[in-house]
Design a protein around this nucleic acid. Structure first.
Lengths: 147, 147
DNA sequence: CTTGAACCTCTAGCGACTAGAGGAAGTAGA
DNA sequence: TCTACTTCCTCTAGTCGCTAGAGGTTCAAG
């Protein structure tokens, strides 16, 4: 029996995030104390740990929803879970490939910079002109900042 | 002299995105035709190409704003641009490292799955229990889908 | 002159949270 | 028991970089 704060502490998921998960329906509404505060049991903790771990492995909340449904029905064949994980692996591989191309391009840009004035700056030049790039880093990876 | 559609076609940046860039102020407000439609010149095209290329290389719009300011002032030393690019390279490297750990974990998960019923499914088990993982994939990379 | 494509502004939505306001409940020490 | 302090509650709005859609106007070709 723990409060939302204890649950947060023991799973590493922040308090507002737990409430958000409840709101979007991937975490059950817990019991409440007399005063209306959330009270969780062991089950909720396990479910939340599952969610956290799957998030760390890059699964989307929609995929996690699917995986949780599968986990709740222990007689089902796990082929579906396999497919979800496989899709995720392919996605991760693609992201690595795109990022590796970016890395090469950035490295080249930096190597060629001799830090004179902007007028001759290699970095600005390369950014202005894609044809100076060696690889096709047509990443849609862009703007994807790790939080 | 091109319309927003032509500009879009020649740079590969979608029309609403161009308007969005104008709205947030990284693209100048262009002249307008008599009827009030946007009319662009060569300069805008170059600037937009610069932005697009930098986005492909993973720079945020804030970083691009900085880079554009630098590019506009050709007498400045390019050390600042160097720093921005270097930061980006480090970021990309970190992302690759995190994703590589994820990749290993996902691969292991899939390798061990023999696709019986969920009750014994390795994928569900691993997701439930982080200690079954070999590496520390503490990725905050999660949920970052390439668009 | 008409048709139809391309343009306009505006608002709302995506995913997965995060931040903050304004107030109520729980808890530890005096 | 009182007080102080932390934790909790709900609600709304913001983050990033767009994307989608409504409802209307302008432009260019035939």
């Amino acid at each position: 029996m723990f409060s939302i704060g204890k649950l947060s502490g023991s799973t590493g998921v922040k308090v507002p995030t737990i409430r958000y998960y409840e709101q979007i329906g991937i975490l059950e509404e817990p019991d409440r104390s007399e005063g209306g505060q959330r009270v969780y049991g062991e089950e909720a903790k396990e479910r939340l740990s599952f969610i956290r771990h799957a998030r760390e492995l890059g699964f989307s909340l929609d995929e996690i929803r699917e995986l949780l449904d599968l986990a709740d029905d222990p007689n089902q064949n796990c082929m579906a879970a396999y497919e979800i994980a496989k899709r995720q692996l392919i996605e991760v591989r693609n992201r690595i490939a795109r990022l590796t191309a970016l890395q090469g391009e950035l490295q080249r840009m930096l190597d060629q910079c001799s830090c004179n004035t902007i007028g001759t700056c290699r970095i600005i030049q390369v950014l202005s002109d894609h044809s100076l790039c060696t690889s096709e880093h047509l990443g849609t990876e862009a703007g994807c900042k790790a939080s």
